[in-house]
Design a protein around this nucleic acid. Structure first.
Length: 422
DNA sequence: TCTGGGGTCCTAGGACCC
DNA sequence: TCTGGGGTCCTAGGACCC
């Protein structure tokens, strides 16, 4: 058996923990730059606000006070996520943190006589009690089915946040009513295609397909999903954190950037952030890609550009100085006067463990000195806050973003701690 | 006027090897 | 009319996830 613990409307729930007055009201959390909706309360969903919908399309609702909006506050969400994981691990032999708001739990080492329905309800209740976050806990023989079970909890309050789905007749009953596009592993493309082919609508329709047909049509990934629905576990449980194979930092800017120096300062900052992540996981990268782009929504001809540059390093590196030099060079090469840049990013690729780097006989970089300097930089920034020191080319003011509706960092900043008057 | 930011895996085809 | 038979590696693009 596997469990999936999924936080309900996670970002909204985090905001509500410190704003209980918003319980039962429409709440939306916005993406960076207050661009579009990335989390919605059930009430906001019912009002028709869609996932990813641009804020300007529902500005009326905000201005009339019908909807409360928040800018995304990832310091808060990250910390709340950690608390939920901590609570879960009290009940779980092994936990796989799948995303900021979802964790899988491997229950196969538990006594098979366990009442998993009761177990799920208990876990959900304790998460709510300890963190304030409502969590849906689905238990089933495979991860894919556990996902479906957890969605069931959200739909039916009678489940009290926990649901064990395992009897074949129950699975069939659920799949017959479950939309095919909501299955984990079946996205928009496939579901649209299937609908066109033979009006496939429900998970049961997909379940009833021939395995060979699924394999031909969707490849091995689709077949795995099909088997998982049939109760055969095909997706590995990974309770150790895997090192990232690619690290990307990119942002959309609040205003178009037209000056080369401004753009460089932002890109340099992305570079520093990415390389810091790289060092944090104890890796080096073999290459870096820089991209810059103009506003993709602006349709007029002429001044649009998407351009990227890939730079290979002769020796894999984790030095901000070395990578930044390459990144700055690439940025200046791509920049064109007269263009307004709306988004840019830095990607680190070909990532390998730092202790597996193949040194080059012809290496011209003094890696010992760089490494010492990076250690000092990381220590200072960890102790005194992000971007206390950095390379000279990076922006001092941070990233230019609109965050008009930002909530306080209640749990991660002493200045924002809640005051209780009594 | 205003439209997010990350990631992974699989497959097909081309280049190249013996 | 005939035109070998295996392989590996890399990359781009497509699909998916949150």
């Amino acid at each position: 058996m596997y469990a999936l613990a999924d936080c309900n409307n996670f970002f909204v729930s985090c905001e509500r923990v410190f704003r209980p007055d918003l319980e039962g009201t429409p709440v939306v959390v916005l993406s960076n730059n207050d661009g579009c909706a990335i989390a919605r309360s059930n009430e906001a969903k019912r009002m028709g606000i869609r996932m990813g919908q641009p804020m300007f399309e529902f500005r009326d609702l905000i201005e009339s006070g019908s909807v409360t909006v928040f800018s995304s506050n990832f310091a808060l969400y990250g910390d709340m996520s950690r608390r939920v994981q901590q609570t879960l691990s009290r009940f779980a032999p092994a936990i796989e943190v799948y995303s900021i708001d979802e964790s899988f739990i491997d229950l196969n080492s538990m006594d098979p006589e366990t009442d998993f329905d009761l177990w799920a309800k208990t876990v959900s209740r304790e998460c709510r009690r300890c963190t304030g976050i409502p969590v849906s806990v689905g238990v089933s023989p495979t991860k894919t089915l556990a996902k479906i079970a957890s969605k069931l909890c959200k739909q039916y309050p009678a489940t009290k946040g926990g649901c064990w789905m395992y009897r074949p007749q129950d699975v069939e009953k659920v799949l017959r009513r479950f939309p095919v596009e909501d299955i984990w592993g079946i996205g928009r493309r496939y579901s649209r295609r299937f609908k066109g082919y033979f009006g496939m609508k429900t998970a049961w329709d997909f379940y009833s397909l021939d395995a060979n047909w699924v394999n031909d049509e969707m490849g091995i990934s689709g077949l795995r999903t099909w088997k998982e629905l049939h109760g055969e576990p095909c997706i590995d449980f990974e309770d150790t954190v895997q090192a990232k194979k690619q690290i990307m930092i990119s942002r959309t800017f609040a205003k178009e950037i037209t000056e080369s120096d401004d753009l460089s300062a932002q890109v340099s900052m992305f570079c520093s952030m990415a390389v810091e992540k790289l060092r944090k996981q104890g890796s080096c990268c073999g290459n870096t890609t820089v991209f810059i782009m103009t506003n993709r929504f602006r349709k007029e001809s002429g001044k649009t550009q998407f351009e990227s540059r890939l730079v290979q390093f002769p020796t894999a590196t984790d030095s901000t100085l070395e990578i930044n030099t390459a990144v700055m060079h690439a940025t200046q090469e791509m920049f064109r006067n007269g263009y307004g840049y709306k988004r840019a990013g830095v990607i680190l690729g070909d990532i390998i463990p730092a202790d597996k780097v193949q040194l080059s006989f012809f290496d011209e970089v003094d890696r010992d000195r760089h490494s010492k300097l990076m250690k000092v930089m990381d220590t200072i920034n960890r102790r005194n806050g992000r971007n206390t020191i950095g390379v000279a080319s990076q922006s001092l003011e941070g990233i230019k973003m609109n965050r008009e509706h930002l909530s306080p960092c209640y749990t991660t900043d002493w200045n924002d701690i809640v005051t209780v008057n009594c």
